[in-house]
Design a protein around this nucleic acid. Sequence first.
DNA 1: CAGTGAGCGAGCTTCCGCTTGACTT
Length: 784
Amino acid sequence: MSKNLVIVESPAKAKTIESYLGKDFTVKSSFGHVRDLPEHDMGVDVENGFKPVYEISADKVKVINELKKLAKEAEQVWLATDDDREGEAISWHLKEALGLPDDTKRIVFREITKSALQNAIERPRNIDLDLVNAQQARRILDRLVGYELSPVLWKKIRIGKSSLSAGRVQSVAVRVIVDREREIDAFQSKSSFKVTARFDLGNGKILNAELPKNFDKEAEAYAFLEKCIQAEFSIKNLETKPAKKSPAPPFTTSTLQQEASRKLSFSVSQTMTIAQKLYEAGKISYMRTDSTNLSEEAMGKAKDQINSEYGTEFHQRRTYKTKSESAQEAHEAIRPTDFSTLVASKDRNEQRLYELIWKRAIASQMSDAQLERTTATIGISTTKEELVAQGEVIKFEGFLKVYLESNDDDSDEEQKGMLPPLNIGQQLNLSDMKATERYSRNPPRYTEASLVKKLEEMGIGRPSTYAPTISTILRRGYVVKEDRPGQEREFKELTLRNNEIKGKVSKETYGTEKAKLFPTSTGMIVNDFLVNHFQDIVDFSFTANVEKDFDNIAEGKVSWQRMIDNFYKGFHKKVAEAEGEKIDRSLTTRELGEDPNSGKKVSVRVGKYGPYVQIGDVEDEEKPKFASLQKGQLMETITFEEAMELFKLPREVGFYEDKGMVVNIGKYGPYVKHDDKFYSLSPTDDPMAVTEERLIEIIQEKRKQESNRIIREYDENPNAKVLNGKYGPYIAFGKRNIKIPRGTEPTSLTYEDVLKLAEGTEEKPAAAKAKGGRKTAAKKTKKD
DNA sequence: CAGTGAGCGAGCTTCCGCTTGACTT
């Protein structure tokens, strides 16, 4: 039994701190918040000063009981939760739940180092009630908004499979995505002609140059190339300028999520799960942070590492200011706990993320890269226009030796190389010149990570909520994360070679999307409803504005009840107004035209099972015809022609082995059904046009594949087989799938080999189908 | 790898921020 009980938020942090403080201190964790408003009730008395009802969260009852016991035994309790608004509130809730006196010692530190801890212990204070009240205002505002708005949606918009919801953060996240989709839809791509030239300098050396301006019209580009026939080209000017590049600050949660997405293709939640493992193993500092600050101790260790590994000229001490205004900076930036550790994990993804964190943190304490940029201007004897060639040479690598931040826009900014040696006045020999048609690009769709970046810029959400917010808007069906194929378009290219201009038309694919966020019809409808009725809540600056109020409460200038009262008066009036209005069908219905066959109305609607097209009315004597919209189609943008196409499926296409074949589009794309079996069409098959012959081919192919599936069976055990799968040969052992070691010939595996390989593998089947994410979540909430 | 969609009424859903596991698929 020790004299002192210190309570922090995270168990991993508790362990570290305990090792620093010695045997007189027991350090325990609260595992985050311990009390909250009730889940199934508003829990806020709007008629009596917004008095909140707090209860100990179901999953914290055990923690609280244990802490109560330890607190009783200890002489002194220290509340050491995080140094920010939420942390202060956690301390207050702990004090209330544990029955501690009001003057219980409260200590704070923003980095976990021995000196920071000692400093904190020497300067305890009491709980800052103003700061606690700012948190209560934040919590209660979110509850009022979420729990008054969501039921309005249930009553006024009855669509979608999962229950609708709205909130200060999620609704703005959806709005950002909906707005962007409409921008893209309205975007008019313009083409122009870009001129590039290649000069042959002899000895295999080539100089690439381009015209700084593009031509809007093909005729102008042609005229320019014409002028260049027989023209003489010479170097008119050479200019060399020094330049430098500086490293990016060490990672915060949001920048880590962005870089892991760009460089490692991790999803936001994947990044957090992996980072959590590294944190729990003591390899990195805390991963939910908005600070770019490094402790003195960490900077010193980074310096040692850089000096010994790269040399002192590579080190430059830097401190970074956190950009975001909403930052609360209770922690350090994300960094390795020990810079001399290069291998932190055997797990490939953990190691890859660790390396990213290590490199970024090390680079942030390194010197600038020194560059030299050379621009060569090339004169043309027949015109005033000039061509430009640019090159770049790295004079001193600096931080680039370790790390370069990547870019969001996949713009074709090619790596500039070195220019060959050139002199002013030098005559150049043109080998060819091209004018290529280029199209302007629409604004990009959001990835998970670029959405997080956008939210952070607007001050919306916190490091601990970025990943859950994305899960929420996906789970609600407001947004889908998908790959979408691009479209083809033609572009023209004029080439001048050997004094002759030739034209050519080629095809390119554009607009291919990978793992991007698209709004659904449901998302658009809910968004429009909120924008119409609750403009100020989904306003992009709403959070920033209320944050100012919270700051005033934290400084003791305003009472939290007064702030909430001010907000609630206007808000609740709008809720009452919206509830009083009739259900607006125009939100969920769009007329498309008339069916030429029956003369009946064609409309697109959104119902319980998603968006669909309807021919006719339910009041008609004959029942209306229905067809679901396909993946990627929206109520808002589908055309009459596209809608009518949907009724052409399912298509009956001929017979095979005396049984009919039916083509349709299912959950996993187009398929043909034959004899109660399903066969997927390949992406190049058009379900509307695919022929009987091709379908028979598809069925035979699949059958052949199936027959090749079994590589080897064993008499000893009918449940052990060597099979040919999607990813190559593998062993199926009961319910388990086992990898075959590299270099082993699958046909040569004996049953003994199989048993040996099966040894040590887990009982569970290795891979599971990604199918039930939604189900799991639903179950979870029910259980609670 | 389906076929569902109206309207009625019952009874259900819901927020944001702190923390980890537990548990399917």
